[in-house]
């Protein structure tokens, strides 16, 4: 991983972070493939990148169960770069969701039916609906590693890929998928719900609209709001009752109330414009109050700008600038009084909650020292981004 710090004429640095450990000696899959993990990947060997004589069924397929996510990923790429005829049958027989995902990516239209059938059946037979509610902190541990490959999310992604890459499912296939997925929705896990909503909208499930609106009612998480309001748009008019439309418009009102950046606000405007355009004249007058965008209200009203000039400050007035031990409460008040909060968001400053015109200053201290900050205020155009 590479990253930079600094910028805009302040001191800059470029860092590289790399793993300094030793490769696992037991990882014989790499040896079988004729390369080592340490040289950056089993798939590369001397001058022939993909043309290694490897039996995909013997090497790649079993290692899709490997506990290392990175290895699983490489194994899937290995499968995808082998002729599908060599491993198609074994992949279907294995029912491994990563293998099915690989087949969905490189297979043919005739593979779609078998892939979707296996996924629907394994989802129906699995105990995915009964997953315990995970505790947030342990969730990554719980889902990472080998377990994650077996989770519902991988299967849902494989379904999506099969539909995207191998052509639109037949009506019978759609019905089969709806029957497998509808009982799981709503789920305990948020990201599973997001994927289920997407797929069920695609499958035009009768259940998806009401359930999603219920999920929204119970959620204060902006990730839910941006996701669900976006995907429900794809449902045609005959899926919506007047009550549903009312709930969606109420939802847009709540969407507007989240403190977000400029793209959040623009997304809200676009969703609203598109939704209102689909309303009948009768509904437009019925919902007249909900249709205009809600005016954002900052937590604390913006202060009036100072009218008296104290001094036209220059850099020289603040030579040897030392701001250690300054009063942060008064600094926050000055941030509001000096009108900074009107355009620049700073986390924790309520008056700046709706500011999105200028750059976010929340973590400015990580990149700029006190003199740089003062110079940028006094000479805003000296360095142009």
């Amino acid at each position: 991983m590479w990253f930079t710090t600094g910028g805009r004429r302040t001191q800059s640095a470029l860092y590289r972070v790399r793993w300094a450990g030793k490769p696992d000696e037991n990882a014989d899959f790499a040896e079988k493939a004729g390369a080592s993990v340490a040289d950056g990947g089993f798939v590369r060997k001397s001058d022939s990148k993909w043309e290694i004589k490897i039996d995909p069924v013997e090497v790649y397929l079993p290692n899709l169960e490997n506990e290392d996510r990175d290895v699983r990923f490489r194994m899937r790429l290995g499968l995808e770069n082998s002729p599908p005829d060599q491993w198609r049958d074994a992949a279907l027989k294995s029912q491994n969701p990563w293998a099915l995902m690989a087949l969905a990516r490189v297979g043919e239209e005739s593979d779609r039916g078998p892939i979707l059938k296996i996924l629907a059946e394994t989802i129906e037979q699995g105990s995915f609906a009964e997953q315990p509610k995970p505790n947030r902190q342990s969730r990554l541990d719980e889902l990472d590693g080998a377990q994650r490959s077996q989770t519902l999310l991988t299967r849902l992604r494989a379904i999506q890929l099969a539909c995207i890459r191998l052509g639109e499912p037949t009506d019978a296939e759609k019905k089969m998928l709806r029957e497998a997925l509808e009982p799981l929705f709503p789920h305990d896990l948020q990201d599973v719900n997001h994927e289920l909503c997407e797929i069920l909208v695609y499958l035009r499930s009768d259940k998806v609209l009401g359930t999603t609106l219920d999920l929204l009612d119970a959620s204060d998480d902006s990730r839910d709001w941006s996701h669900y309001l976006m995907f429900l748009r794809y449902l045609e008019d005959d899926f919506w009752t007047t009550d549903d439309r009312h709930r969606y418009l109420e939802g847009l009102k709540k969407f507007d109330s989240f403190a977000g950046g400029r793209w959040w606000i623009r997304a809200g405007e676009s969703l609203r414009k598109e939704f209102v355009a689909r309303l009948s004249e009768e509904e437009k007058s019925k919902f007249a109050e909900l249709i205009p965008p809600q005016q954002p209200k900052p937590d604390t009203p913006p202060a009036a700008p100072p009218t008296e000039i104290v001094k036209a400050w220059t850099m020289e007035d603040f030579a040897n600038l030392d701001v250690s031990g300054r009063d942060l409460k008064r600094g926050e008040a000055a941030y509001v009084k000096g009108q900074c909060a009107v355009c620049h968001k700073k986390a924790g400053n309520g008056a700046s909650a709706r500011a999105f015109l200028g750059p976010d200053l929340t973590s400015i201290a990580n990149r700029f020292g006190p003199s740089d900050i003062l110079e940028s205020i006094l000479h805003p155009s000296r360095v142009i981004a």
């Binding site: 700008p305 100072p306 300054r326 009063d327 000055a334």
Partner: peptide
């Protein structure tokens, strides 16, 4: 070119400017 009006800071007392920079640099 920045649209920020530097003049707004002219309405702040010296101490307030220092507190503001201290707040931003914290």
């Amino acid at each position: 070119i920045s649209t920020m009006p530097p003049g707004l800071i002219y309405g702040l007392e010296r101490d307030e400017v220092l507190d503001l920079i201290g707040y931003l640099a914290a």
